[in-house]
Structures are given as C-alpha cells and as structure tokens.
Nucleic acid binder design. Structure first.
Lengths: 146, 146
DNA sequence: GCTTGACCTGGAGCCCGCTCCAGGTGCCAC
DNA sequence: GTGGCACCTGGAGCGGGCTCCAGGTCAAGC
C-alpha cells in the first residue's frame, strides 16, 4: 500500500503541513498512521478523503459541516442517505452561489461599461460629478454620445 | 434630497448598523452627513455606493481592495481607467471563481451519484468498506449492478 | 560524531470582517 | 418629567480558519 510522507501529502493535496495536522487534530481526518519514528504516513485513502475535503472547502462548506460529513462517513454504511442529503443540500448551495455570482457579475460589468462610456465622451460634454450614481441613472449621458 | 436614517440605510442595504459605522470608520464610506443631533443621514448617493460595495463584497473582493477602489473614486475623473482595470480584474476573478465552483460541483454531484449507486445495489453484493475511494475507482461496483 | 532536514508536539498568535458593549445624547409620547 | 427608543463613541471581543513558534526526535550524509 502506497504511503505518503506529510510533505508529499501536502504537495498532492495543496494543503499546508500545518493545515493537515490541524485537520487531524480537529477530527476532519481520522488519526493518520505513523511509522516507527512517530511520523505520519498518509494512505491513498487519506489523500482521496483530502480531495473531497478540498472540494467541499473550496465550494464554501464550513469546517463544522465537513466535520458532520466526516462523522457520518465514519459511522458507516447506514448513514449513506444522510450523506446524500448533506451533499445534495450543499450542491444546491453551490448552485445558488453561482447564480448570485453571475448576477452580481453583471452589475460589475455594467459598471465597467458605464466607465467606458464616460471615457468615450469627449471632455467637457458632461459634468464631472459621478457621485456613485448607478449606471442606469445616467442613461442620459450615454445618449449624449449619439 | 432624500436622506436615510442609519436604520433605513441598514434596511435598504442589508448591512448592519455596526457594519455601516465600521465601513465609515475605515474609510470605505466617506464621512456620512449628520443632522443637528450628530446622527448620520445617508444620502441616495451613499446608498448607491453601498450597493456597489455589497456587490463587490458578495463577489469576494477584500476590504483592502474595496478601499483601493474607494480611493480611486474619491480621487476623481482621471482615475477612471484605473477603476476599469480594477473592476475588469475583479470580473475575471469572479469568472474563474464560477468556473472553479462548477468544476468542483461536478465532483460533488459525482459523489452523490456514487452514493445513489451504492444504495441501488442490493445488500450483501458488495463489501462495506467505502474507504473514501473516489467514485471512478469503484466503477466495478457500478458494473456489478448490471 | 556532527550537521541538515524533515518531521513531531502543545499552545499561542494572527488576520479578516465584523459584532458587541458601556456609557451617553436627543427626542417623542404619555 | 420619565420612559423608551434610535442613535452616538471608542474600544474590546469574537469566530473561523488557519499559521507560527519553541523545543525536541530521528535518519541520512559527510
């Protein structure tokens, strides 16, 4: 069975050594095996689990919720429905996260376009006070362009 | 000119009173006007700006970067190109945020599907050790279904 | 046999972004 | 005139998620 040193595990997972130790300490990882010298040796399974952790973390799951998932996983087979429920809820959360990002991104792009329009109007044709007005409220400005 | 009490501003923007005061303190808002009693009165402009702040914050911009944007805005007209650059960079950041979320979401959905498949297999046809194996490595299991 | 380097531990510290608190003001309703 | 309420201030505290540190162990290479 392949074993990974902490350094290799860090390399593979992108977590820092400290973070790996921290995750073990709080129980997000079950106790990692040790060699004779007491040094950790991560298994292939540990790395798979860490991959899942990275995925959940990077999609905004809190450590508390990941711990819940870890517990379910440790409890065995009969928690699979609960795990599905947990992941499905998270999946929906990710979905709405994406939707919100898209929507706010449009506002940002609108603002960029607004600034571009301002630059496109020759100096002096508009008063300089932007005053944080929303782009939509300056449509007059954009019309002045034609 | 419409003015908003702190309570109304909080209501409209979704920021807490404390957060509004905090934002003013750190300079993310320029000093808010006061009435005779020294109480804040937010202007329409303040609310517009706060709308932008919410947008940037909710898309993951740090306070430090929002401060940078606020400074540019205060410096006036000649910083518009810089502001475009800043927002365009943020727009790209949002884009890759979304891409990453989508990608990780697929992994999560794959895991959900894996669990569903496990449930679909009648008891006893598989050994119970999941051991955090990635779904792809258990394809044998899924084939066992047919 | 000594250095180097990767690891170990427990515990403190850090950064971010708020959030809460104590003590005070001003105004309105009863 | 006395609640009650919305607000004020400066400053402390907090929760999340790490990150750093001091002091120590072991293994390999020179």
């Amino acid at each position: 069975m392949t074993a990974y040193t902490p350094g290799q595990a860090a390399e593979e997972t992108g977590f820092s050594l400290d973070t790996l130790r921290y995750y073990e300490r709080i129980g997000l990882l079950e106790p990692i095996e040790r060699n004779a010298a007491g040094q950790r040796r991560f298994s292939e399974d540990d790395l798979h689990w860490l991959g899942m952790v990275r995925c959940l973390r990077d999609t905004g799951m809190s450590i508390a919720e990941m711990l819940r998932f870890a517990e379910l996983t440790r409890e065995g087979e009969h928690t699979i429905r609960d795990r599905i429920a947990l992941l499905a809820a998270h999946d929906r959360a990710v979905e709405s996260q994406i939707a919100e990002l898209r929507q706010k991104q449009e506002v940002i792009q609108g603002k960029i376009q607004y600034y571009r329009d301002v630059l496109a109007i020759p100096d002096g044709l508009y008063d300089c006070q932007e005053k944080h007005a929303a782009p939509e409220e300056r449509r007059d400005l954009q019309h002045a362009d034609g």
